[in-house]
Design a protein around this nucleic acid. Structure first.
Lengths: 187, 187
DNA sequence: GTCTATAAATGGATAGAC
DNA sequence: GTCTATCCATTTATAGAC
C-alpha cells in the first residue's frame, strides 16, 4: 500500500543481504516495478533513504524488545526473546542484522545512518545488561565481572553469529547462540 | 619494491577499511601513484585481485597463529596470541578483520574470494578449538559443552568486537575481548 | 611495467511532462 | 506519484604505444 513503506521494506532487505554500498536505486526499481526517478521522488538521496531505513529498523527492533520485557519478567525468557529475534534473521537466510551490516561498512555509510545504528547497538546492549542484572540478582544467571561488558560480548557474538551463519550454515549460527546461553547458566 | 605485493598490501587495507564492494582501482591508483591500467596489468580483474588478497591474508594469519603455538605450549599464552592479533587490528583504527569484512558482504563478493575466507574462518576456529581442548585437559580453562562450539563463539565474538570497536571505540572492543577471557577462567 | 585513450555499463540524481 | 529523458561521475576493463 504505502509506497514509502514498501520502498523502506525492500531497501532494508537489500541492506541486510547486500549491504549499503552494494545496493542501488536500480535494485529497488527492479523489485518494485517503478522507475528510479519515482523512488527519488520519495527519497531524494540515498543517504536520506539510508537514514529512513535505520530509523524504521531502530523502531522495529526496540519495540520488539520492549514487547519481550512486557511479556515476561523471567530473565531467561527475556533472553530467549532476544535470541528469537536473532534466529528469525538467521532463518531468512541471506540476511544479517542491519545494524551489524552498517557497523561492518562503517567508513562508507552516511553519518546520520551510522549514528542511528550506533544508537540501536547501544540500546540493545543496555537492554541485555538489564536482563543480565536481574538474572544475576535472582541467582539464575552467572557470569564474571560487569554486566555491561557481558552484554557487549553477547551482542558482538550475536552479530558475528549471523554473519558466520550466512556463510557456513544456520546450524553453526544456532550452535553459537546456544553456547552463549550455556555460558550464562548458573552453577 | 614488488609492485604486486604493494598492490596487495593496499588492497588489503582498503578491504579492511571500506569493504570489497566499496573500494576501487581508482583508490589503488591514487594511493600508488600509477594508473588504473597499470594495476589491471598486475591483476586483470577485481575478482582476481580479491582472491589474491584473500590468499595472502590466509597465509599471513595462519602463519602467525602457527608461530604462536610454536612459541608456547601454555593454552593461556596461546589464547593471548590470538587476542593479540585481534588487538593489533583494533589498534590500527578503521580496520576490521578482512575475513569478517568478506563474511559481512558475503552475497556480493566473488566466490573464490569467499571460499578462501571461509577456509580461513574454519582454520581459525579449529586452531582455537585446539587451544580450548588442551586448556580444559590441563584444568586451566573452563567452559560448557563442546570445545568446537565454544571456539566458534569466541571467533564470532572477536569479529563482532572489531566491528563494534571501530564504531564505538577501541576501549569497548578490548572490554569484550577481556570478557571472553574471563568467561574461560577455571573456577 | 607503465602510460594514454577509450569503451561500455552502472550509479546517483534532476527536469519537466502527464 | 509516476514517467521519459538526460546528465555527469564513477567503475571495471581493454587496446595499443612507449
Amino acid at each position: 500500500m504505502d509506497r514509502k513503506e514498501q520502498i523502506l521494506e525492500i531497501a532494508t532487505e537489500l541492506i541486510q543481504t547486500r549491504g549499503y554500498s552494494a545496493f542501488s536505486y536500480q535494485d529497488l526499481s527492479d523489485r518494485l516495478g517503478i522507475t528510479k526517478a519515482s523512488i527519488h521522488h520519495h527519497f531524494p538521496s540515498k543517504a536520506e533513504l539510508g537514514l529512513a531505513v535505520a530509523e524504521r529498523y531502530f523502531a522495529d527492533v526496540t519495540s520488539a524488545l520492549g514487547e519481550v520485557k512486557r511479556a515476561s519478567d523471567d530473565p531467561w525468557e527475556q533472553l530467549d526473546g532476544y535470541v528469537g529475534q536473532i534466529l528469525s534473521i538467521i532463518k531468512t537466510r541471506d540476511r544479517i542484522c542491519a545494524a551489524g551490516a552498517v557497523h561492518s561498512e562503517f567508513n562508507v555509510v552516511p553519518e546520520s545512518m551510522r549514528d542511528e545504528m550506533c544508537r540501536l547497538a547501544k540500546h540493545i546492549i543496555a537492554w541485555i545488561t538489564d536482563v543480565l542484572e536481574s538474572g544475576r540478582r535472582a541467582g539464575v544467571m552467572d557470569f564474571p565481572g560487569d554486566p555491561k561488558a557481558e552484554a557487549a560480548l553477547i551482542f558482538a557474538a550475536a552479530q558475528g553469529a549471523m554473519q558466520f551463519g550466512r556463510a557456513h550454515g544456520a546450524v553453526k549460527a544456532r550452535q553459537i547462540l546456544q553456547q552463549i546461553k550455556e555460558s550464562l547458566r548458573a552453577k
